[in-house]
Structure formats: C-alpha cells, structure tokens
C-alpha cells in the first residue's frame, strides 16, 4: 500500500471486479442513451439532487451510461477548477461539495465556527489511518509507540474515522478507516490529495510504516 487507494481503482477492483463497461441503460426500457455533451451537466444535476453520496453505479444507472463513461466524466469534471464546487470521492461514493478556496466565506454563510485544530497526536493517528487504512489500534500503536485509545475515541467522536471492519485474526480487532468528513475537514477532493509520504534515509515512508504495522500483526 500505502498511498491512499485511488477511488476509481478501488471501485473497479474491490467492488465490481474487472472493468465491466456495461451499459445499464440497455436494461432500462424507454431510456435514451445520454449524449456525450449532456453527460457532465446530467451528472452535476444528479449529484445536486442526491440526498447523500451516490455510488458510481447509481449515477451510471440514472444517466443510462456505462460505469467507465461516468468515471471518465467525473474525472473531467474534477479537472475543472474554476467552479465554486468540487467533486468529492471517498471510495466509490461521490458527492458535490464547495470548493475549499471559499471555505471561509461558506463557513460564514452557514454560520459555522471554524473547527478546532487537530492536536499532534490526532494528526499522527489520522495520518496512519489515512495512509494505510484499514488499520487496527495495535498497528497504529506500533507505529506511534504510545497508547492510542484516547485519541482514537476523539477522532471517532469527531467523525473523521470510523470502524470499517474487523481483522480476521485473534480477537477480531476493529479496523479503522477514514470518513468523507475527513475530506471535508481538510477540503480535499479525495484521499489522493493527501500530502505525499516521503522517504527516510532512502527508504520509502510507506514501507517503514508497513513494517511497523506488520510487527503489530505478528504480535497478534
């Protein structure tokens, strides 16, 4: 691992298998195929109307086009940065959100206080979860070198991380992953926009973190 998973890749590999490129519309009687130039505004309309994050599959079904066309159109829309909104991807879920450069003005408009800054302990824990999710508490503690129960509770309470599963190992420890709220907090369009992990003494940081996390798994 350990760049955060690219959303599209995750979708293709983890959720729906190899790229199916199927046209859902073919199974919907009365649905006309959407023209290329109409697809971007249509996706915008769907995302505006969606009460919550929509999956790529839901968008494809509603637009009557293939998953691949939705993916490529979403990528095109994400590349345009002159708008007041951005397309946010978390896993295979997509939603529209305001552009981060207008955060202050939007916050004022919504009457929101700026959220309190994260502490060093929270940032370290969040970094582990974000860069190598899913992560168990033992893995996080092996990397940080200190007990993390308190800071995990804090991050869970703020909705920045959530339990995404359980490790198939002794004790079935809980695995933590990031939430869309994390992207909103930092104003990111996807986990790909997290600052890149560097290298320490010539060794990729991701490898170092993996090795420490593996030591925790060995201990289990």
């Amino acid at each position: 691992m350990n760049r955060p998973q690219r959303s599209g890749k995750q979708h293709d590999e983890a959720d729906v298998g190899p790229p199916p490129a199927r046209c859902v519309a073919a199974s919907l009687p009365g649905t006309e195929p959407t023209a290329d130039d109409e697809l971007p505004p249509l996706l915008e309309a769907l995302l505006l109307a969606a009460p919550e994050s929509a999956t790529v599959e839901q968008l494809a079904e509603a637009a009557g086009v293939s998953l691949d066309r939705v993916e490529s159109t979403l990528a095109d829309l994400s590349a345009t940065n002159h708008r007041g909104w951005q397309i946010v991807r978390h896993g295979d879920r997509v939603h529209l959100a305001t552009a981060p450069r207008f955060a202050e003005q939007v916050r004022r408009f919504l009457g929101l206080e700026r959220e309190s800054r994260l502490t060093g302990a929270s940032l370290e824990t969040l970094a582990i979860v974000a860069y190598r999710q899913p992560a168990t508490r033992a893995e996080i503690e092996a990397i940080r070198g200190v007990d993390c129960s308190g800071v995990l509770s804090t991050l869970l309470g703020r909705g920045l991380i959530e339990v995404v599963g359980r490790l198939e190992a002794l004790g079935n420890p809980m695995q933590y992953g990031t939430t869309p709220a994390l992207l909103q907090h930092f104003g990111l369009a996807s986990l790909d926009e997290l600052p890149p992990l560097g290298a320490i003494d010539g060794v990729a940081a991701s490898e170092l973190l993996d090795a420490r996390a593996a030591s925790a798994s060995d201990a289990v």
Binding site: L96, E104, E124, L126, G187, L197, I200
Partner: peptide, 24 residues
C-alpha cells in the same frame, strides 16, 4: 517509521492550519 509518521502528520497539520474546508 516514527519520523516518517511525524513528517506526514506535520504535512497534515499544515493543511489543517490553512483551515480549508469543503461543505457538501
């Protein structure tokens, strides 16, 4: 590994300091 993590946390902290946010 600890230093790698600390560097990552510092980068995240910088992002946090900027106070950028995105509202759905």
């Amino acid at each position: 590994a600890h230093r790698a993590l600390r560097d990552a946390a510092v980068a995240l902290g910088e992002l946090d300091r900027l106070g950028l946010g995105s509202f759905p």
